[in-house]
Nucleic acid binder design. Structure first.
Lengths: 191, 191
DNA sequence: CGTTGGCTTGAGAGGGCTCAAGGCCAGTGG
DNA sequence: CCACTGGCCTTGAGCCCTCTCAAGCCAACG
C-alpha cells in the first residue's frame, strides 16, 4: 500500500501490521492525465479519492458559466463530491486534474467493507470529517471579509502550493474575479 | 433519556435497549435563559450541546464589532464550537440563547467514554459530521450568489423556523446588513 | 512566427454598504 | 391607563468596492 496513505491513517488511528497488509484489498490505483476528469457533472460520484501525486480540483459551473472551486487536492488529500457519494445522486460538481496525477480509489462498497472489517476506520473518518468541517467554517467566515484579507488568509494557509495553481483558479476558489485578484496581488506586493 | 436524542441517534445507528439505558450516564441537563451564554469568546468550549427546547446561536464578533452568525440551533440540533472543543484552545465564538432553552450537555471526557463504551457512536458522529460538512459546502457556494438568491435559499431550507429568528440575526447569518435584508424582503414580497 | 491562454491594466457601471432619520411596537414605570 | 423608552425594522441618499467589458502584453507551443 502507498506509504502516504498509511502515514495519513496513522496520524489518527493505530493500525496493526495485519490491518495494513489488508489495505490493498480495498483500494485501486488510478492515473489521471492533466485536464482529465475523475468526476463529471451529472454523473454519480462513486468513490472517494486519495491523491498520491499531482493536483486536482473540485468545482461547479453556474448558469452564467462561472466556475467556483470548492476544493484543491494535492498529495496526501482526499477529494470527492461527498454529497453525491453518500446519497448516490448525480453530482453538481466536476473533479479534474490540474497536473498529471495519481490517486487511490476507494469506492462506496469498499469503504463500507472497510468500516465493517476495520471498525476503527470509523474513528479515522470521523476525525478527518471533523477537521474538514472546522476548516470549512473558517473559510466561510473569511468569505465575508475584504478581498485582500481573503487572499492573505489563503496565502497563509496554502503558501506551500500557491505556485502550483494558476491564478484564475485561485480566484475561482476565493470567489472573486481574476482581474480583482490581479489587482489585489499588486497592492499586496507594494506593501 | 430525552426522546428527541434517542430518535436522533436512531436515525443513523441501531441502539439496543441496554445501550439506551446507559445514555443518561453521559449527559447532563441544563437550562439556558434567553440572552444567557453557553460559551463565551476566549473560553474553551468544553462540551457538545444537544438542544431539546428553544433556540441558540453560535456567532463571532469581528474587530469592527460586526456579528457573523455561524449557526442557529433549534430542537434536535447539536451546537458547539467544534474547533475549540476538539483542540482545547480558547474559542473565537459565542453561543447564546435567543429563547429560553434547554440542552443536553456532553462534555469532552464523556464523549470519549461514549466512543469507547458504545463504539457505534463513532459511526453516528461520522455520519452527522459528513452531513454537516455537505450542508456547509452548499452554504459556502451560495455565499457567492446575489443577496436575493441567498435569502431565497435560506427561506427554502429554513422556512420552518424563519419566524422564530429576528431579521437582523438572519442578516448576520447570511453575511449581509439588516438594511439590505429589509430591502430584499420588500422586492421578494412584490413578486 | 502566428496562435492561444493567462495575466495585467483601464474605464465605467452597479450592487450592496454606510450613515442617518423615522416609524412601530412591547415592555416598563409612573 | 398612558407616556416613555429602547429595540427592531424600514426607507432614503450617497459612496465605494468589486465586477464587467475591453484591450494589450507576454510566454508557451505548434
Amino acid at each position: 500500500m502507498h506509504e502516504l496513505l498509511i502515514k495519513n491513517f496513522s496520524r489518527h488511528i493505530a493500525l496493526t501490521d495485519e490491518e495494513i497488509s489488508r489495505l490493498p484489498d480495498f483500494f485501486q490505483h488510478k492515473k489521471v492525465g492533466k485536464k482529465r476528469y475523475l468526476l463529471e457533472e451529472g454523473t454519480v460520484c462513486k468513490a472517494d479519492y486519495f491523491v498520491i501525486k499531482g493536483c486536482l480540483r473540485q468545482y461547479q459551473v453556474d448558469n452564467e458559466g462561472r466556475e467556483s472551486v470548492m476544493q484543491f487536492a494535492l498529495e496526501d488529500w482526499w477529494i470527492a463530491d461527498l454529497y453525491s457519494f453518500l446519497t448516490g445522486t448525480p453530482s453538481a460538481f466536476n473533479i479534474d486534474a490540474l497536473e498529471d496525477s495519481e490517486v487511490l480509489v476507494l469506492d462506496y462498497d469498499h469503504q463500507q467493507r472497510l468500516f465493517n472489517e476495520i471498525p476503527k476506520m470509523n474513528i479515522y473518518w470521523r476525525i478527518i470529517m471533523q477537521n474538514a468541517f472546522v476548516a470549512l467554517q473558517r473559510r466561510l467566515l473569511f468569505q465575508q471579509r475584504s478581498l485582500e484579507e481573503r487572499y492573505l488568509e489563503f496565502l497563509k494557509r496554502y503558501a506551500y502550493f500557491e505556485q502550483r495553481i494558476p491564478q484564475h483558479q485561485i480566484a475561482a476558489y476565493l470567489g472573486i474575479t481574476p482581474e480583482s485578484l490581479s489587482r489585489i496581488r499588486n497592492t499586496v506586493l507594494k506593501k
